[in-house]
Simulated scan of single mutants.
Amino acid sequence: MKSPLTTIAFDADDTLWHNERFFRLTQDRFAGLLCDYADADDLANRLLAAEKRNIGHYGYGIKGFTLSMIETAIEVTEDRVPARVIRELIEAGQEMLRHPIELLPHAQRAVETVAQDYRVLLITKGDLLDQERKLAQSGLGDLFDGVEIVSEKTTDIYIDIFTRHGEGPDRAMMVGNSMRSDVVPVVQAGGWGIYVPHGMVWEIEHAEEPRSALRYHKVSTLADLPQLVAQIDPRNT
C-alpha cells in the first residue's frame, strides 16, 4: 500500500528546544524592575495586552517582546520610567538573543529517526535572524530537507508549504507544542496535527483541543513520535 504520509514537519521553540522559560525569567526581571509602580499580576496583564497589540507591528520573538516591555514600562509609570530601567530591559532582551540553545529531551533522536524514511521540515515563526541563530546552534540543521520561518501559522500557510515541499497537507504531519499554531490549522488543512505538551505555553498560543478530529493525536514526549508514525503509516501495518 502506498503511504499517505510523506512529509513530517516540526515546530522549533519549545518543541525541539527550550524557549518559553527564558521569556518567563525575563518577565520576572521586568516585574522586579517595576515593582514600585504596579504589582506582578497587573504588569503581566498589561504586558500581554501590549504583546497582542504589537504582534501585527513587530511579529513574534524576543525583539517584539522587548519593545512591548518598554511600552508597558512607559505606560505603568505614566511616562516617568527611569532611563536605567529602559536600559536594563534592553539588556535583558539582548541577553535572551545571546542565550545558548538547549535541546529538549528526545528531540534530536526523534528528528533523526523519522528523517530516515520521510521528508522532514522545520516550520517556525518569529524573528528571522534569531530563528536562524537557534537552528544553527541546535546542530539539527542538516537533518531538515526544508526550513520555513513564517510570520504566522495559518491553514493557508500550511497548505502552501506542504504543497511546495511535498504532496499537499493530506500527506503531511506537523509536530508541535502549540495547539493554536501547530495543531489546529494543520488539521483544518487536512493533515495530521501532533500535539506534544511542553508545560509552559504562552497564553496567546492556547486553543481548544480538536478531540473529534481523526487526524489529531497527542504524545507525551517526542520519544513517542516514531511509534505513532509507524501506526499511522500503512507501510508499517
Rank of each mutant, 00 (worst) to 15 (best):
M173R: 07
V201S: 03
G191S: 09
V187E: 10
H206T: 13
I194N: 08
P169I: 01
S178A: 09
H165R: 09
A189Q: 12
R180L: 12
G190M: 11
I204A: 03
P210S: 08
G199A: 14
S178I: 02
V187C: 15
H165I: 02
R180Q: 02
R171A: 13
A172G: 11
M174A: 04
I194C: 06
E205G: 00
A172R: 11
G166K: 06
V184D: 04
S212H: 13
R215M: 08
L214S: 11
V183E: 02
E208T: 15
G176C: 09
H165C: 14
R171D: 03
P169G: 01
H198F: 13
S181R: 04
I194E: 06
R211K: 11
P210F: 03
P169L: 00
P197Q: 09
M200C: 03
A172T: 14
R164V: 11
V201C: 06
G190V: 10
H198D: 14
E167I: 02
W202Y: 15
Y216A: 01
Q188G: 13
M179N: 03
A189E: 06
V201R: 01
H217E: 09
G199P: 14
D170M: 05
R180S: 06
M173G: 05
V196H: 02
I194A: 10
D170V: 10
W202H: 15
Y216F: 15
G176S: 12
M174H: 07
A207E: 15
V186D: 00
L214V: 05
W192I: 15
P169F: 00
